[in-house]
Design a protein around this nucleic acid. Sequence first.
DNA 1: GTTAGGG
DNA 2: CCCTAAC
Length: 472
Amino acid sequence: MAMHLFDDMFDDIPSRSSLRIPPLQDLFPGPSTTSARPSPLEPIARVNIDSETNKLTGRRAALAQAKPLDAPETDDWETLAPVKLTLRPEVPKIHQLQEPPRKKQKLYDHEQIADFVQLPKPQTKARADKPRPFQPIAVLNELHEPPPSAALFPPITPSASQEKLDSSPFRGRSPKTSKNDGEAPTRRRKIKDRSTSLATVKRTYNRGRTKWTEEETDQLVKGVAIYGVGRWKNILEHSEFHFKKGRTGMDLKDRFRVCFPPDAPHKWVRPIPVGPESDDEKSESSPAAKKGSPQKDAYMLSRSRKRHWSEKEDAELDKGFRLYGYQWNLMVKDPDLKFDRRSGGQIRDRFRLRFPELYNQQDSAPQQKKPPEKKPNQSKKQQPPQAKPAMTIRKSNDLKEQAKNDEGDIEGEGRAPPKTALSFTTGLLNAEDEHYKLSNSILRDDWDWDDNLTLAPVAWEDMANKPMFQFD
DNA sequence: GTTAGGG
DNA sequence: CCCTAAC
């Protein structure tokens, strides 16, 4: 099925001649058997790994041993010199002076990309390095610590002791490593600041740059060849690769995006081998490969794109919550809820994002059963009425928090948030018209009442989570 | 916890 | 490199 899917994918692509795609070159050339090698950017649906040795097997193993173009004629080049092999002499500076500044597009010319050992060199914008505060002082006193005077600065906030540590300009970056050749600095902890009084204070601090070496980039390309686009964690942890300490999958993703811009895949996609597939993984090579046509967009074949939630879908989510509460999988099954290929987990995450406070109350929420059926011929097993859940009174600050979040939605989206039934529950106490909302939510008249239930499920839900009284 | 995409 | 929503 997947094959035909891909066949259609390339139907609307003009023929290669009309596209004038640059000469196809092997990003991943071997000494002799180029045709036996799959595309480095070919998505890998399955990776064969020997469970015993934890090593790659089959063609992927061979891929991992691929040599760069100018590798010496030795079979174990990688094991002998795993790090230095791909180093190339620096481009003489005279070239940089003579050649006019290249346009950004030039960076991705196939001439450069095709030879993966020579990846696009970053624009050397002789940017006057913005000195970090206090850094010169640290150099002067040769202490990799803040100067004593730093202690004189008052804390920004009363509870900023930890912040001061994290915000130190010396954190994770001693002046000694100014060459930026060493390890990446340790990553800072994420700090979530929800207090409004500090909203304007910048509380995040940069990790600092860790330059990508050609070795690293080589390994990244190899990793994509082995695992596929998007398998950044796998690539990062591949035993044969040695990325700088502190690198994360995100870094790999960013780097790959820099080298192979997804909006211009024809700039970097390599040709597909023309020979017959040699072995066990025929099913993994894309149909495009069999046609001998260039792969249009390897990104398209990576993990599924993230689909944003439309307003309509949010409305479905709202309706679903009124019907099923926190039972996300039931929402998926309900044909009346028109979720478009959303899983229960996706629905849950969306709900958690939109209504975090309400989401965190699900422990005390009653478990609802299927709502009233339209065709009540399911009289075999009648669910007993749900036990009345323990009444919980929401704390006032919880409600304020939720109200704040609701307002944030307004600002963030630039449009009024859908005033959904969820708002009944979430923003109730904040509203002036409490009576209206109470009656509207608990004594709903638009319910398809199930005779087997003394109350509609939503009523229990609301009673459990909504304050019946306000003490402020 | 990871990844895609925007910044 | 960071942030955040989506996964």
